[in-house]
Amino acid sequence: MQMIDGYADVAAIRHPQQGAAQYSADAIEIPVLNAGDGAGNHPTQTLLDLFTIREAHGTLEGLNVVLVGDLRYGRTVHSLSHALVRFGATLTLVSPESLRMPSEIVSDLNAGGAEVTETTDLAGTIAEADVIYMTRIQKERFPDEDEYTKVAGIYMLTASDLANSKESMIIMHPLPRVNEIHPSVDSTHHARYFQQAFNGVVARMALLCDCLGVKIPKKVK
């Protein structure tokens, strides 16, 4: 990283070990963007997630957000939950027991004044949700393959599951998916994950501009 410090104006680091981005930032002078550190955090994903939610709902304030899947190893939901608490979100954390949100994060969310509910039942959360944020259960995050096999495919959302959902409810996913969102959902107006993926381009462009001191016009032709 000290070599990169001399070469570049900004560094983005994706690393399999947790804490790598903070460690790098402590070692060098140029801005370091955390592009994902093991099962730790993924803050640039959070920026695009927030942008996507605001596009859909017109606000980030006071939404009922359901985070689903691998909350233990899923770095996107670690960062997103921290951010949503700042906007007064009500969070419902849906996961199997073995993949519950780390206690440190739940403690932070509670300390931030969030209303947090933990459950294993996805179906019971759909009707009240403003956002359902699905995540895949990633085999590579598990130190033990048996643990992965027990929970793989435990949550699968289909179009018929959405019959009683709010009209404005959106379904998000950091992609790629495995089988947690059935392709039948793609053609519903709830599906927002492909727009979300595109928003990753502009959100990261904006972040790089900010790091490099490039002004972004209010309106781009």
Binding site: Q18, G19, Q22, Y23, D26, G40, P102, S103, E104, S107
Partner: peptide
């Protein structure tokens, strides 16, 4: 770099790694 732990709370005592944030 040095190993760094951070005291998050005194009572009850809560300590986390400054890098990975694990308790």
């Amino acid at each position: 770099l040095p190993h760094k732990l951070r005291v998050v709370n005194i009572e009850p005592l809560e300590i986390r790694c400054s890098y990975c944030e694990r308790g």
